[in-house]
Amino acid sequence: MYWARKSFTLLLTLAFVLLLTFFAFRIIPGNPASAILGMEASQEQISELEQKLGIEGPLHLQFFRWAGGVIQLDFGHSIRFSEPVLSLIASRLPVTLSLAAMSLAITLLVALPLGIAAARARGRFADLFISLTSQLGLAIPSFWMGIVLILVFGLTLKWFTVSTFVPWSENAWLALKSLTLPAIALAVPQIAIVVRYLRTTMLEQMNEDYVRTAKSKGLSNANVYYKHVLRNALIPVVTVVGINFGEILAGSLVIEGVFTLPGMGRLLMTAIGNRDYPLVQGMVLLIAFTVIIINFVVDLSYRWLDPKIRLK
């Protein structure tokens, strides 16, 4: 019953995203083809482009034609690059995905110890310091963080070369190095979110009866925190990390501009600049679908991690 409902909800959400993405690009004032081609375009040119864009005929037929293509993984052709949208995206995806993955890894590596430390030091200086710093982390826009990182670590300390991305296949070490600063810039606000959330769930769990039982066994504080409390506190944090991934993905669209990385973000900006609607539409749809599916998977893992739900 639960799964039936959950799957239904997933499909409904996907359908709404499909509709939204389709109609968002249909409310363009006037004819999109003539908007793209400009005033001087001839009628033949316009109808040729209309056909290419799949925007001739009644609206609902347009939608079903487009949605049918999407289901078969056909996102149409880019106007600017005359290439299938999907292959364009595929060529840029590795950069964005590795940036997002790296950023998520940094987020977890830094946020988990800090969140635990803040909870353990509740009300003391370390807690206050971590709370204050995470407020700052939340407030700093990641693209500005990127600029500051370039200034400090790129230009002043010269630890990293800026604006030269080396593909993974060419030199993995240099690729990693060129992704480090942008990944940190993206991770900062996410670290702040996870730290705050983990601190709260840890403190909630510490009031539970089983903590008293664990202490009554004579376990050390570290054992009580890391084995008993953390295990329970981490389960709800998983949901937050899922949401983080979506935010990181969106943030990478901007941060790629700061560091001139040849990823999805740059492609999207080029597409927007050229009014390459099929490309923009395809990328938006793909990103939204990715976020929905990741959250679905996170929901699954959340239920799997909690034995109370898993074994029912």
Partner: peptide, 19 residues
């Protein structure tokens, strides 16, 4: 939920592309 599936800035990007 469908609106939330678009990470913050992406939704804004669509809207400013269209207009």
């Amino acid at each position: 939920d469908a609106l939330l599936a678009f990470p913050g800035i992406l939704l804004a990007l669509i809207l400013v592309t269209v207009f």
